[in-house]
Amino acid sequence: MALTLEQIRNDVADCLGEDPADIPVDENLVDHGLDSVRIMALLERWRRAHDVEADFADLAEQPAIQAWASRLGVA
Rank of each mutant, 00 (worst) to 15 (best):
A60T: 01
D14L: 13
A67T: 01
V30A: 04
A13S: 09
D26S: 14
A54P: 06
A13H: 10
E61H: 11
S36Q: 13
V12Y: 01
L42Y: 12
P24R: 08
A2F: 10
D26T: 14
V74W: 02
D31Y: 08
E18A: 12
L72A: 05
D14R: 14
R38W: 05
A60P: 00
A21E: 15
S70K: 13
R9F: 06
W46R: 10
A67L: 02
D35E: 10
E18L: 13
I39G: 00
N10F: 10
A54E: 05
R9L: 05
V25L: 05
N28F: 07
Q7G: 07
D19Q: 15
D11P: 08
E53D: 14
A54I: 07
A57H: 01
G17R: 06
G73V: 07
R71N: 06
L34Y: 11
I8M: 03
S36P: 11
A49W: 12
A64Y: 03
R71I: 15
N10M: 13
A13W: 08
D26P: 09
L5T: 03
D14E: 15
D11M: 08
D26L: 09
A69H: 00
N28A: 07
R47A: 06
H32K: 11
V52R: 04
A2W: 10
R9P: 06
R48Y: 07
E18G: 05
L29W: 05
D51P: 03
V74F: 02
R9D: 04
A54R: 03
I23W: 04
A13T: 15
A21T: 15
R38E: 15
A57P: 01
R45A: 11
S70L: 13
L3R: 00
G17E: 12
R48N: 10
Q7F: 08
D19C: 09
L59D: 00
A2L: 11
V30S: 02
A13V: 14
S36L: 13
L42H: 10
A54M: 10
D11Y: 09
R38Y: 09
D51R: 14
L72I: 03
G33P: 07
V37S: 05
L59M: 02
L16V: 15
E18V: 13
N28V: 12
A49E: 15
A21G: 06
W68R: 03
R45M: 08
D58M: 05
S36D: 11
T4P: 04
V30G: 02
R9C: 05
A60H: 05
L34C: 11
E53V: 14
R47H: 07
A41K: 12
D14K: 12
L3M: 03
E18F: 09
F56Y: 15
H50V: 03
Q66A: 11
A60M: 03
P20R: 02
E61N: 05
V30P: 00
R48W: 06
